[in-house]
Design a protein around this nucleic acid. Structure first.
Lengths: 175, 175
DNA sequence: TATTGTTATACTCTATAACTATA
DNA sequence: TATAGTTATAGAGTATAACAATA
C-alpha cells in the first residue's frame, strides 16, 4: 500500500508489514465495533455514543454530578459539541444542568432517575454486544496481552503532544 | 460502570474488570488515532478517511481499477455513501468512473495520475503519524501480540452475523 | 485577561427510499 | 426478479467564531 517511500536516504521510514497488519486490524476492528455499539445504543435507548458516555460517566460519578468541563475532557473535541449533546439529554429529561455554587461560570450536570433508567436499560445489550464481538474471539492470554499493550498505547497517546503543537497554549483537546 | 447486572441468576453476565479495561483502552486508542489520522489527511491532502481508503485500494489494485461494488465492501455501510465520496474524488480529478464493458450495470473506478500524486503526498505524514501515536509506544513483543489478537478478532467479526440478523437476505454490509 | 459555557452558522457525512438500467 | 449504481432528501453530528458572564 505504498507505505515505503523515499529512495536512498529513507527520509521517512515506512511501516513494516507486521505494523501495517496490526494497524489495519485495529482500524477495522474498532470501526466495526463502534458501528455495532452505536447501532445497539440507538436501537435500545435512542442514544448516541457520546450521550451514552456522558450518562455513563455521570452514573459513575459521586452524587451523579460532574461539571461540563470534566465531561468534555477526552470525550469531545469541541465544547459546542458537548453542549449540543447535553442539550439533547436535557430535553429528554435524562440530565439536568444548573450553575455551580462554587464557580458561577461552571455548569453542574446531574443524571436524573430517568437517565439512570436508560443506562440500566441499555447496558445489558451493550455488554452483550461487546462480549460477542470482541471477547468471544479471545483466549485469556489474548485478553491480558491486548489490555496490556493498549493500556500502554493509551498512556502514550495521552502524553504525546498533538501534531500541530500549538506554540503556546495548553491544548486540552476540547476547545 | 454498571456492567454487572442481574441479581441471583445473572441473566447477562457482565464484563470482568480486565475486559472492561481492554474495551475502554481500545475505544480510546482507536478514536484518538482515527481523529489524528483524519486530521492529517485533511490537512495534507484534503481527503476524508473514506476517500483515502478508496484511493489507497485503487493504488494497490491491478491497473488501478476496481468496481464500485468491490470498493463498497467493508468500506462503507451504504452504497450511496460511496457514490457520494467517489463523486467528490471524481470532481477533483483523482478518479474516473466508466461503465464496465463486461457488465453494463457495473462502474469501473480508476485512479488518475493526480490521484496517485495525492496518495504519495499524503502517505509520509500518514505513516509518520501512525508510527508516532501507535508504534512508538510498543516493544516488538507488543506488536506481535497486538497483531495476533486483533487479527483473530477481525476474522471473528467478519464471521459473526450482524445483531439484527435479517431472517433471509445475504446482508453484505453495504446496502 | 483567562475561563466556562452557549449560540449561530455552515458544513460534512450518512442513510433511506425511490428510481434507472442491465442481467 | 435480482443486481449495480445514482439521486433526492432529510437528519445527525461537528467545528469555528462570536458572544456573555464570571474569576
Amino acid at each position: 500500500m505504498l507505505t515505503r517511500i523515499g529512495t536512498v536516504s529513507e527520509p521517512t521510514p515506512g511501516l513494516s508489514g507486521e505494523q501495517l497488519g496490526a494497524y489495519f486490524s485495529l482500524m477495522e476492528v474498532s470501526s466495526f465495533l463502534q458501528y455495532a455499539v452505536e447501532d445497539q445504543l440507538r436501537a435500545d435507548g435512542d442514544l448516541s455514543y457520546v450521550q451514552f458516555q456522558i450518562l455513563a460517566r455521570l452514573v459513575d460519578a459521586p452524587d451523579g454530578r460532574l461539571r461540563m468541563t470534566d465531561l468534555a475532557d477526552g470525550l469531545v473535541y469541541s465544547r459546542s459539541g458537548l453542549t449540543y449533546q447535553a442539550g439533547l439529554l436535557d430535553k429528554r429529561g435524562l440530565i439536568t444542568r444548573s450553575p455551580s455554587p462554587d464557580d458561577e461560570r461552571s455548569v453542574i450536570v446531574s443524571v436524573t432517575g430517568a437517565g439512570r433508567d436508560v443506562i440500566a436499560l441499555v447496558m445489558p445489550g451493550h455488554v452483550a454486544g461487546v462480549r460477542r464481538l470482541l471477547f468471544d474471539a479471545m483466549a485469556d492470554s489474548d485478553l491480558a496481552a491486548l489490555g496490556g499493550v493498549l493500556g500502554r498505547v493509551r498512556d502514550h497517546m495521552r502524553a504525546v503532544p498533538p501534531r500541530s503543537a500549538k506554540p503556546r497554549a495548553k491544548r486540552t483537546r476540547g476547545n
